[in-house]
């Protein structure tokens, strides 16, 4: 599943302010609400569900990158956003690093395959160090969106060997 099929462009944020886990997740879910991808009445439920999921084990799994996520009946398809933090967020990551790049996902409970296909695409791209490095340096939502598009299309700029 390509980024363009689940990342909501209007929810991309390149400078989240929070430095702790819960406020950072609130900022990111709020971005999905503001983009119209999540109903405001589901905001609190989704935040709490993501926090509960984090209690089972941090999703900060890879070199300053985290993939907070949950299932929630309030969405009909996988919706996601990308967020960058300049200062880094304390996220109890497995490697102890602060998180600078987030992919946040909310998936419908009855479609586990779609969640896995979104995760697969993220995981596949994150293995490309140049992609993650350039993405972390993006300054605007448009730049992020362009990099995601290039990754979707397998273009050389982001897929070239470092």
């Amino acid at each position: 599943m390509k980024f363009s099929e689940f990342i909501v462009p209007a929810a991309i944020r390149t400078d989240i302010k929070a430095e702790e886990k819960e406020p950072a997740i609130r900022e990111m879910v709020q971005a999905l609400v503001e983009a119209g991808a999540v109903n405001p009445e589901n905001y609190e439920g989704i935040v709490k569900a993501i926090l509960k999921r984090e209690e089972l084990g941090s999703t900060g799994i890879w070199r300053g990158i985290a993939v907070p996520h949950t299932k929630h009946p309030g969405v009909q398809r996988v919706v996601g956003m990308v967020a960058l933090s300049r200062t880094g967020v304390e996220f109890n990551s497995l490697d102890g690093e602060r998180v600078h790049l987030f992919f946040l996902l909310v998936s419908p409970p009855d479609r586990p395959g779609d969640h896995l296909r979104a995760l697969e695409h993220i995981a596949r791209q994150l293995r490309d160090e140049k992609f993650t490095r350039v993405l972390k340096q993006a300054q605007t939502a448009e730049e992020v969106q362009q990099l995601l598009q290039e990754a979707d299309n397998g273009q050389p700029r982001v897929r070239a060997k470092v």
């Binding site: 589901n42 609190e44 439920g45 989704i46 709490k48 569900a49 509960k52 999921r53 089972l56 949950t70 299932k71 929630h72 009946p73 309030g74 409970p109």
Partner: peptide, 14 residues
């Protein structure tokens, strides 16, 4: 052998 994530969202939204 993991605790289930099932219904996390449902519980949290109630």
């Amino acid at each position: 052998e993991l605790p289930s994530e099932e219904n996390l969202g449902n519980q949290a939204s109630q």
